[in-house]
Design a protein around this nucleic acid. Structure first.
Length: 451
DNA sequence: TCTGGGGTCCTAGGACCC
DNA sequence: TCTGGGGTCCTAGGACCC
């Protein structure tokens, strides 16, 4: 979850309903102005992971709750409940800092299967309101609820009903409503938790003008600094800036940010699309220096990636390795496989060779990551050697290389079955067995992981 | 205080082909 | 023998998001 930006905009008059406390009756009806043109909502679940923990642990309600990694293992805060925020605790903050700021907080690692479950129930509510839902993460989704000839319901009424229905599940959400994804997204950040911020058609530029450039999605620390050095601090200044200068400095992004600052974003709410890459990373509590430890870590992550690929029915052609050193600098290598694979026993040796290109034994390694991309087009998934072997009349009829492939495949599938029944820790190959207990713990909000 | 893990997209340069 | 421009693929790195 990203930091809320400082709220420099004056509240737009009449746009905010008075917010009831949790458990009170919903907001009194807003006086509604007519709505012309597209209507987009951004629904953002409030402090989602922490809220689920409070839902499941009644004793934690009303208390500061922090979901995150261990302070003594390079961990960071994933989510802080609203009770923890007055202490200064924020998402992405090092856990050691958070512990100092709020030593009495309830501290917990994530239970991601549970968050996924609650998220899925909420996304089902959203899809019951409209088929035009774009889930952007585990706790956020865009909805296109543009009034049609069939359904003339006012967008604000839809948003209020969604808030009620979500609260029936025991968590809360904030919603931004506007004529574009850019506007809806920024509006949703204006008032949290349980806020509903409405930007009526025609008022986009006035709404955006006083906000800091960082409020716009796509402008991060680097772009903010480049803009600041050119005297551009607000979205109003960005809207008035010279387009050619922006294109020169930012390339494609320059035009995009200029259009959006002028309220002109027309990006559609898109159906959720296919996964493009699958990866696993691991940060170590103590840096690795020995080759055998590095290979063991690579093998572990290669196995996790392989298993996720098989579960999703994906085979990738592009294999990637990423390392981070103790100064936090990063290097990466990628290689094309001769054919798409989902089998770590086939590609792990290649990873061992690749690591030599970016690391020498003895140099401390803080993180190792393994990823796969370049998936075959849908319907064009290549027949594996194993399938060929299956089709052969007998094992004696297939080439030795194919028999090897078949043995490997059989072994992989057997271990997947055991892991399905008894959990990931139940089966490990010998080369995966090092580095136990030397990792941070993790979190992901990527939608691809929640389906 | 000292910075996670899961992703997406863009850029720039080089290889290769026509 | 020396030269073009465009397209595509690949690679490494970086910005950005939640």
């Amino acid at each position: 979850m990203k930091e809320e930006f400082p709220q420099t905009a004056a509240p737009a008059p009449g746009n905010r309903p008075s917010r009831p406390q949790v458990g009170e009756a919903p907001a009194r009806p807003l006086p509604l102005e007519p709505w012309e043109g597209p209507a987009i909502l951004l629904v953002d679940l409030d402090a989602f992971f922490a809220s689920v923990e409070q839902l499941d642990h009644p004793a934690w309600r009303g208390k500061p709750v922090i979901v995150g990694g261990d302070a003594d293992k390079h961990g960071v805060v994933s989510t802080a409940s609203y009770e923890a925020r007055p202490y200064g605790v924020r998402s992405a903050m090092p856990s050691s800092t958070a512990r100092r700021l709020c030593p009495d907080a309830v501290w917990t690692h994530g239970r991601f299967d549970r968050y996924r479950e609650v998220s899925n129930a909420i996304m089902a509510i959203l899809r019951s309101e409209t088929p035009h839902v774009q889930q952007v993460s585990i706790d956020e989704a865009f909805l296109d609820i543009t009034p049609t000839a069939v359904n003339r319901e006012h967008p604000v009424r839809v948003a209020q009903r969604i808030q009620r229905r979500v609260e029936e599940l025991g968590v809360t959400c904030s919603i931004g409503a506007g004529t574009s994804k850019t506007i809806a997204k920024i509006a949703s950040d204006m008032d949290k938790p349980r806020g509903l911020t409405v930007v009526y058609p025609g008022s986009e530029r006035d709404f955006l003008a006083p906000l800091p450039v960082r409020a716009m999605s796509g402008i991060g620390a680097s772009a903010e600094e480049k803009l600041r050095s050119r005297g551009i601090r607000t979205l109003g200044q960005l809207a008035d800036a010279d387009l050619r200068m922006l294109e020169r400095v930012f390339g494609k992004l320059g035009r995009v940010m200029h259009v959006r600052a002028n309220g002109g974003d027309d990006a559609p709410v898109e159906q959720d699309d296919a996964v493009k890459s699958v990866s696993n990373e691991m940060t170590f509590a103590t840096d690795l220096t020995r080759r055998e430890d590095v290979e063991a870590a690579i093998a572990t992550m290669a196995a996790k990636v392989g298993r996720r690929l098989r579960r999703k029915g994906l085979r990738g052609r592009t294999l990637a390795l990423r390392v981070k050193f103790d100064d936090l600098s990063v290097r990466s290598v990628q290689r094309q496989l001769p054919q798409p694979s989902d089998d770590e026993l086939a590609y792990t040796p290649l990873l061992y060779a690749m690591v030599d290109e970016v690391w020498r034994p003895g140099t401390p390694l803080r993180l190792i990551g393994v990823g796969m991309s370049g998936f075959a087009e849908e319907g064009a998934v290549q027949e594996s050697l194993f399938d060929v072997a299956e089709a052969a009349p007998s094992a004696d009829d297939v080439e030795p290389v194919v028999r090897d492939e078949r043995k490997r495949r059989g072994l992989i599938e057997a271990t997947d079955l055991v892991k399905d029944r008894f959990g990931e820790a139940a089966v490990r190959f010998g080369h995966e067995l090092r580095n136990e207990g030397n990792t941070t713990g993790s979190s992901s909000k990527n939608p691809a992981d929640y389906k």
